[in-house]
Design a binder for these strands. Sequence first.
DNA 1: GTGAAATAAATATGATCAAATTATTTCAAC
DNA 2: GTTGAAATAATTTGATCATATTTATTTCAC
Lengths: 221, 221
Amino acid sequence: MTSKNIPEHARVYGCLRDMILFGDLVPGQPVTIQGLVDQLDVGMTPVREALRRLTAEGALMAMGNRRIVVPKLGLSHLEEIYYARLAIEPKLAEIAAKKSTPRLVSDLQIIDDRVDAAIAKGDIGAYLRENHAFHFRLYRAAEAEVLQSIALSLWLRIGPSLRAVGGRRGTTNLPDKHDKAITGLVASDSSMVYSAIEEDLRQGMDHVRQDMIFQNGEEAD
Amino acid sequence: MTSKNIPEHARVYGCLRDMILFGDLVPGQPVTIQGLVDQLDVGMTPVREALRRLTAEGALMAMGNRRIVVPKLGLSHLEEIYYARLAIEPKLAEIAAKKSTPRLVSDLQIIDDRVDAAIAKGDIGAYLRENHAFHFRLYRAAEAEVLQSIALSLWLRIGPSLRAVGGRRGTTNLPDKHDKAITGLVASDSSMVYSAIEEDLRQGMDHVRQDMIFQNGEEAD
DNA sequence: GTGAAATAAATATGATCAAATTATTTCAAC
DNA sequence: GTTGAAATAATTTGATCATATTTATTTCAC
């Protein structure tokens, strides 16, 4: 059983990426190389590589002075992400719909059940994980590397803020146009899948935007 | 002595990035760590960091087996890039137009003169450089980090192929809707700037697409 | 053509040096 | 005598390199 032998830098990358994607890191939080070396018990070269990669993807942000932090989004950045997500993700979903398989549909149904369960339990962490799984299982089916990597970058940028919003507002009012997307897939109606994902994004992003505007009014920074 | 003391890994990154952006590296060409260490006379840690970053941006591609190469685009990847560029770049131009300054206009005029000169001389390298300078001087004015970083990633992906096409077809028939864009800026007509950049991209990308289809017909791989 | 040895390149560690932040001390002013 | 600001010392963190280990590929023998 020769294990896949994933390189350390890839393991560190995956670990950090998930932490950012699922809100284990707070916006504004500093990320130190030495801290990760101690915490994950690896050398510093792999850590550095992982950090450069995540910085390039927008998941982390390099300040001028050698410091790396989890970015906290401003309203203008949020609008950019909103625009880009609407431009990229529904298209990915549409392409995926044209290549749909029974396997894709059954996978998505299973995942969506878990999404619903997480919402019912009020478990933000599980919701973020399963919601991500749903979208990227769909996007992966599009077999469109370039668009998918853009989508991942956008999710990484918004991950920490999603968690923060969920923590304040709970799991009520979370978007769920997943049913409509699945219906579109089984009906081979790619434009229905397109609009389902579009609506799903709009709901989620509007949620974040409203929270951000509210927060801005409450606390000055 | 106001040297900014740019770190090695950033210098290596910038160097490699320009080489890819302006076609000094051929699609399919392997990029080795050792080679860069010898060529640029730096340690391997900075080289590794630069390579990870460029890989994350899509400028380089990691094969499964520890090899890194300059990706060569297939037709389906080209279509993805085409779609994404049309979704992102005209929007960036439009935002920039709404924040236009006299300084921006004069900068763009100067750069566009250099673009025309490069076309007249048939100097592909200079054309790629000045054309990039024109677009990103405009995009930079939008002050939209997220969209701009997506645009950069897309340019990095298509850079090597642009050079290859230019090498085969020369500088004739290269797009130049730059005049229209500048006209739109001085007229404060942001939708005119939007469509100017849109047309510019279409011309350039159609050029690459046609060449790619032709090449596919000629040589099998 | 298959398998084992050789080669070359990538991965990973720890040490060393440089830079930046934090803590501390000193000195001056009230 | 206490407070506050500036300067300096100390600690933490980042950047780079040299080296050892692992892994993929190639070469050569059978």
